[in-house]
Structures are given as structure tokens and as C-alpha cells.
Design a protein around this nucleic acid. Structure first.
Length: 525
RNA sequence: GGCUGGGUAGCUCAGUUGGUGAGAGCGCACGACUCAUAAUCGUGAGGUCGCGGGUUCGAAUCCCGCUCCAGCUACCA
């Protein structure tokens, strides 16, 4: 429907100090699947991800490790974050780091523009300060003391009294944009998705917006405020701007207009930054707001939000080492309703891997190609007269392709997979009903056998294309076994929006026997 | 405390504006089949729809109360 139009999609940029876990990987995979789908539908697609490298925490850990913050960031990007993308096969088009010149320089341009337009002013930031932490504490880290300190505000980490300190800060007049933001949510109901996330955002803005402190002067690891180099930019203000600096804001207008506005995929914990602060910043700079901000849910382990401190954090490689990257991608896209929280368990992963990928899709591909090999000497057979059974398959494939595309368009990735899977189920049922192994025993039913196997093989072709954004490695193997590339071109070049058109794979194409796409894993937990 | 969302078969979840005997997948039992990764296909068992009231000819679906869980309640990437 939007063929050829721009589709710019982003993930949050990783805070380099974090340790990659499946939550990060989940966000990346979701964005990557959406990007691959659109790219393969002919949209002018751009997937952006990257790292956030400024701020006091990074400065501190770098110092503690005896290196500069830049060296520290370089190491983490190289050893943790870029490898993560490979582990889960993310095909990003760009990777921005907030310490790159293209970012820093244009963040300053942005700041200067807002300053000149009167959206930024110098003020006093007053907050409770913890001497132990050496920083101002957010409300969430302040608790009321007990014992001798009853009634006193204390630091949640150190349990020591906090001091009320003041610091000169620059403030962004975010409060000016309250009404415009509410109008935005009202007039574009799909701006913030899903609806539950939208409700939270609206409720938050309705209670009133305060101006936002956007500078710090107590440390220097950040982007200097252009008109006052004793201050550096607050990390969030800095980080959000990656979405525009990465596509040419401030220096390549042509590229910027080609890409912007973006679709942001974020975890719901950082929704507010993207759905409130970010659009306000853009409004101030007279830049179009994003197309959509989609807040996905959390992955729950044992019913709780996954966390390192509770030892529920799971490294993506723990899963991919056993099940492979395709299974990782498939599992989280299929088992979690995109936008809602999803419960992860090894049992569920193992069950779905075997029931859906190995027994369902993988075995289907194996049995069809094995029969082509056995009964047709390794070629795609020629179909004869069509019956209602074949017409039913054609209809299922066409409907699945259409509905899957509509689902992806609406960010409902899990639904798209459910639609695609109707093809797997229909083909397995069709083969059992038609009993090609019986047809093969009699020369009189030779033509019928050809029809059945062609139908099944062409169904695999559609599946390979439709599933390629989600399980790129397995579908590539299938594509090779179908020997489709010489006649249809590479798998990546197949138009997803035409995937449901029947009869693309010509009869007579030589096909191979297929190794198990998803081998059973006997000793899995 | 306030606000939002949710508590539906063993498990994970669907259930439009209230209406034929409450659904899917997985798991389980039984049967069919043998091309295939001991895979596939079919049938079946199984549920006080969190609790208690109310509205209605009729409620999982609307209203009230209660209970439990999760999230939000601004500077945590």
C-alpha cells in the first residue's frame, strides 16, 4: 500500500554501560523484522541503531577501569554491542554513536537553534543530593529513613541523609508544548502505540509538564553547551537527537528529508522520553514529529521483569547457542503479543521450537523436498488439473500474504506470523489428505501426484518469502534447496507484497533434498 | 494514596457494540497414516470465565463492592 515510500525505523540507542540481555535483543529483532518486511516490500527502508556513550555513569566506570570514557565506550561497542547485532542477525543500515562528530556537532546546532528561538533559559536546579553517590537523586531513588532518620529523606543506596543543593542549569521550556502535545495525541490516535501506552502518556501530560533541565556542570563527559562550555548536555537530550543526526540533520538536508520522520520502537520504560520530551523538542525546533512511537512490553521471567540484580537477566547467546538465531527471532516475535508484556521460559521456547519450527515448518519442507527427490528425480513437478483442494491452498496462501502484510503495517508482528502459519498448517493437512505416497504407487495417478507436489512446493516458495524477514537463515537454505534464485532471483529481492501470487516457481526446476532446517534438540532443558 | 491495564481449560493466551451448548495453540488420551526431523492428520477428555451483589428475557461481556497481580505517578538508557 505504501510501496516505494520512506520507512525509517529506529531502536533506542544502547547505554554502553549496560550488559546486553534478551530485552535489548528483543527490541532489535522487532525493529529488524519490521525493517526487513518493509525493505522487501519495496519501501525506502532505513534501520538505525547505535549507542549512547555520554554521562556521568560512563565517566565513572571508565575512570574506575583506568581508561578514558572514549576508550571505555570503544571497548564496549566492539566487544558487546556490535557482536549482539550479529548474534541475532540484525541487518541495520546504520549504527550511530553519540560520540561521533556527526552527532555532537549537530546536537550543538540543534541546541543553538532552540536557544536563539527562546526555548532555553538559564535557571536554578534544586534537588536532593547524595554525597555518597555524588549526584542528584531522582524521586525513585529517595526513600524515607527509618530509626534515627525517621521522616528524613535518605538515599536508597546509601541510606544517608540527602542535602538540598542548587546548581545552575539550562532549562528547555517544555511546559510551552503541553497543549500541542495533547492535540497531537488527540488528532493522531496512532501516534503512540499501543493504546495502553497512549493512555499512560496522555495521563502524564495532562497532569502538567514542567520545564526540563538539559545541562550539567558537575562533570564534563558530554556535549558542551555551545554558548556556555562550562556545561554539558543532559544525556537524554543528547541521546534522543541521534534519531535526526544519524540521517543528516544539520548537514545533509536531502538525506534528512528522504528519511524523516521516523518510526520509533522503544521499551515501555522509556516511552515518555520518546512520546513527550522528544516530540516537544522537535516542535521547538520546527521539525516534524515522528510518525509513530511504539512502546513494546517487557519480557517476564518467572512472572517478574527480567533484571540483572535478580539474576533473571539472560544473554541472547545463551539462547542462540542452542537454538540458533532464527529460533530466537521467531520465538519472541510469535510468542509475545507485540506491545504487551511476554513471559519467557525455557520450557516454552523449547516447546515452540519443536512444535512449530521443527515439526511444523521444518518437517514440512523436508517431506515435500524429499518426495520431489524420490518421485520426480529432484525437480519441481508439473501440475495437472486443479481441484478444489488446490484452490483451497491457493486461497489460504493469498489470504495469509495479504493479512500478514496488513498486520505488519499495524506493527502486529505476532499476528502476521499467525497468518503465515495458516499456510504451514494447511499444507501439512493437504499432504496428509492427498497421500502423494499412495499416488506414487500407480502410474494412473502420476499426473495427480505432480499436481499435489507442485502445489506443496509452490507453497514452500511462498513460505520462504513470507518468513524471510523473521527467519532469514532457514529461509535462505530453503530458497537454495528450491533452487529458486536462478529463475526468481535472490530471496531478499522477492517482493513480499506479491508473495501470495500463485504459480511463481516454474515446473521442472531442479530441487535438492533439504537438511533439517530446525533439527530436534534432544537434551534441551 | 491516585490513575491505568489485567485476573478465561495443566501452560501461554483469543474472546467485536451483552444472545445458538465458552474458543485457539501447546500438553495429555485414543485412533489413522508412513512421504518426512519417532515428524503428519483426525477425534476426545478438561473450565465455578478472581469473589460477592445488581441491571436484563439473557452477561465472561454492562453497573457497584471486594480481592490479587502488573504498570504509571518526570530527569532510571
Amino acid at each position: 500500500m505504501s510501496s516505494g515510500s520512506s520507512f525509517f525505523i529506529t531502536t533506542p540507542i544502547f547505554y554502553v554501560n549496560d550488559v546486553p540481555h534478551i530485552g535489548h535483543a528483543y527490541t532489535e529483532v522487532a525493529a529488524d523484522v519490521l525493517a526487513r518486511w518493509h525493505r522487501q516490500s519495496g519501501d525506502d527502508t532505513w534501520l538505525l541503531t547505535g549507542t549512547d556513550e555520554h554521562g556521568q555513569k560512563i565517566l565513572r566506570t571508565a575512570t574506575a577501569n583506568g581508561v578514558t570514557p572514549q576508550e571505555w565506550s570503544d571497548k564496549l561497542v566492539r566487544e558487546a554491542w556490535l557482536p549482539l547485532l550479529e548474534t541475532i542477525d540484525v541487518a541495520n543500515d546504520d549504527f550511530i554513536r553519540t560520540t561521533e562528530e556527526r552527532h555532537e556537532k549537530n546536537v550543538q546546532k540543534f541546541l543553538q537553534k532552540l536557544y536563539d528561538a527562546g526555548h532555553i533559559y538559564a535557571g536554578e536546579f534544586e534537588a536532593l543530593y547524595c554525597v555518597g553517590c555524588e549526584e542528584f537523586k531522582p524521586e525513585s531513588e529517595i526513600v524515607t529513613g527509618t530509626g534515627e532518620l525517621v521522616g528524613v529523606k535518605v538515599c536508597a543506596i546509601h541510606s544517608k541523609p540527602l542535602e538540598l543543593l542548587q546548581e545552575k542549569n539550562y532549562f528547555f521550556r517544555m511546559s510551552d508544548f503541553q497543549e500541542r502535545l495533547l492535540t497531537l495525541y488527540e488528532t493522531r490516535p496512532d501516534f503512540v502505540q499501543p493504546p495502553s501506552a497512549r493512555n499512560e502518556v496522555i495521563a502524564f501530560v495532562q497532569q502538567g509538564l514542567k520545564d526540563l533541565s538539559i545541562s550539567r556542570s558537575s562533570f564534563d563527559w558530554g556535549i558542551p553547551i555551545p554558548w556556555d562550555n562550562t556545561h554539558v548536555t543532559y544525556v537524554w537530550f543528547d541521546a534522543l537527537l541521534n534519531y535526526v543526526t544519524a540521517v543528516g540533520y544539520g548537514e545533509n538536508e536531502e538525506e534528512f528529508h528522504r528519511r524523516w520522520p521516523a518510526n520509533h520502537i522503544v521499551g515501555k520504560d522509556i516511552l515518555r522520553f520518546h512520546a513527550v520530551i522528544w516530540p516537544a523538542m522537535l516542535m521547538a525546533a520546527e521539525i516534524e514529529v515522528p510518525r509513530h512511537v511504539f512502546g513494546h512490553g517487557w519480557l517476564l521471567v518467572g512472572g517478574e521483569k527480567m533484571s540483572k540484580s535478580k539474576l533473571t537477566g539472560i544473554a541472547p547467546s545463551e539462547i542462540t547457542d542452542t537454538f540458533g538465531s532464527d529460533a530466537f527471532r521467531y520465538y519472541f516475535m510469535r510468542a509475545v503479543s507485540f506491545g504487551q508484556d511476554g513471559s519467557f521460559s525455557w520450557e516454552d521456547l523449547n516447546a515452540r521450537y519443536h512444535a512449530e519450527l521443527a515439526n511444523g515448518f521444518g518437517n514440512l519442507a523436508s517431506r515435500v523436498l524429499a518426495m520431489n527427490s524420490r518421485y520426480y528425480d529432484g525437480t519441481t513437478p508439473k501440475p495437472g488439473e486443479i481441484t478444489d483442494a488446490e484452490r483451497e491452498i491457493h486461497a489460504v496462501v493469498a489470504a495469509a500474504a495479504t493479512e500478514a502484510d496488513a498486520s505488519v503495517e499495524a506493527f502486529h508482528v505476532h499476528e502476521a506470523l499467525a497468518h503465515i502459519w495458516t499456510i504451514v498448517d494447511a499444507l501439512n493437512g493437504y499432504i496428509t489428505d492427498q497421500e502423494p505416497w499412495v499416488l506414487a504407487k500407480n502410474d494412473d495417478t502420476r499426473e495427480r501426484l505432480g499436481t499435489v507436489l507442485y502445489t506443496a512446493t509452490e507453497g514452500l516458495r511462498a513460505l520462504a518469502v513470507l518468513l524471510s524477514p523473521v527467519i532469514p537463515l532457514a529461509t535462505e537454505k530453503l530458497w537454495a534447496a528450491l533452487n529458486a534464485e536462478p529463475v526468481l532471483g535472490s530471496l531478499a529481492s522477492q517482493n513480499l507484497r506479491a508473495a501470495g501470487v500463485w504459480g511463481q516457481l516454474p515446473p521442472g526446476t531442479p530441487v535438492s533434498v533439504l537438511e533439517a532446517l530446525f533439527p530436534r534438540i534432544e537434551s534441551a532443558e
